[in-house]
Simulated assay, not measured.
Amino acid sequence: MAGTVTVAGIVAACLVLTTALAAGGAVAAAGQRVAAAADAAALAAADAASGAVGGEPCERAAELARAGDAELVDCTLDGLVATVTVAAEVLRFHATASARAGPPGRAD
């Protein structure tokens, strides 16, 4: 009987650990997804600012952020350099990411 209780405890601990690791992995993956959405949004805004594509830069950034399942939080332009911040909710965690894009040598 004592062995059964021990095994049940070990199985329960393994289930808790697996669930925690899966949740941590999901949050980490979502962070990467939000970073990718920020990169895409910044590139879209910079392209619109330069005239390479049509549209208003921050509107284009918002479109790309939504395509990446994120929300555009901030969008600023300094000439042809765009800086954006996007956010998303994942498992009750708030993930944000920022990115800058512009012509070579000007987005540093």
Results as ranks from 00 to 15, higher is better:
A46I: 00
R106Q: 14
R60K: 10
A30C: 10
G3A: 15
G31Y: 00
G51T: 11
R106G: 01
A30W: 02
G105M: 07
A28C: 11
A40H: 09
V7I: 15
T19R: 14
V84L: 11
L91G: 07
A2P: 08
M1R: 12
V11K: 01
A46K: 00
A12L: 15
A13M: 11
A52I: 10
G9R: 00
L21M: 13
M1T: 15
A67Y: 03
T19D: 02
R33N: 05
G24F: 05
V90M: 15
A36V: 10
R66C: 04
T6S: 10
F93T: 06
A41C: 02
A30H: 08
T76N: 13
G79L: 04
A82W: 00
L17I: 11
A41E: 03
A41Q: 04
V90H: 12
D78E: 13
L72C: 06
V86S: 07
R33V: 05
T76G: 14
L64Q: 09
V86K: 05
A99V: 09
V53I: 14
L21N: 06
P57F: 03
A38W: 04
G9H: 02
I10W: 07
A48V: 00
E63M: 08
A30M: 08
A42I: 04
V86E: 03
A37I: 03
L17H: 04
V7D: 09
L17P: 00
R60V: 03
C14I: 15
D39C: 04
G105T: 11
